[in-house]
Amino acid sequence: MSVLETQAQKVRDSAKKLLADATAQTVIGYADEGVDGLCVPVFITDVKDVGRLVWNRRSVPNLASYLIGRKGKTAIVAKPCDARAVVNLIVENQIKRDDVHIIGMDCPGMTDAAGAALHACETCQVNTSPVFDERIENAEVKPVSPEKRDAERGLDENLARFTKEMEKCILCFSCRQACYGCYCQTCFMDRGVPDWHPESPDMGAKMLYHLGRAMHLAGRCVECGACENACASGVDVRYLIREVTGFVKELYGYDTGLSLEDQPAMLTYQPDDREVGFLGGEAHG
């Protein structure tokens, strides 16, 4: 049995136990029921259905946002990045620690239908779950490569790249809906007053949306890549957010969703915080 299949069997065994002894009312995991081998989210509530649960390199979607608003205790099959999302949902008081049972998967990285590593997985920094109730190990998972930040670009070059990505965007908001962190009841893009969204997919509206979302994910993005995986238009949605995540790390030494005790970078203030984090503060450098 392959290592992944062993992990899958352990997921099923665990789900069976959790449901049978009523530790959890629902297990959220993956079923091999999508087009082109994509594993789709599945909600298992009955022991007799645990056979639908799978785990493989196409277990792509981030399941964390399904936890918001759920009643009863829920177990979640979590890739390490998804577990970070769960941790941050707890830190941001969207769900309670006691309401969730994290099945933390050691993760070999996910692929697209053709078997190529997903963009986010190529640069993954965390491939074992930082917080879990049970860990399902995979001895083949290698330590991660040191962080690669995109090289600094000049303003013109940055704008040219951003514009090129935005040309592909159809402003469908799928990236927002796929993001665990975009749980606002009414997104700024959906507000009537002020009219953020001119209802026309022009450059201005697209840039406004992506810039706004990037700022809202500062110190909150867990680098799961769900946004870019969701984008049917092939936009490199995450490229701005990666930059912002890099700044947060550089300025505050903070990584999102690694610990339940950490104070979120954007929700705390220390007198010695660098001025560059404020509007009109020192120039970046």
């Binding site: 789709v40 908001f173 799928s174 927002r176 809906q177």
Partner: peptide, 11 residues
């Protein structure tokens, strides 16, 4: 499991 993105209706 629908995440309510509406992309399906656009395409």
């Amino acid at each position: 499991t629908c995440q309510g993105c509406g992309m399906c209706t656009y395409i």
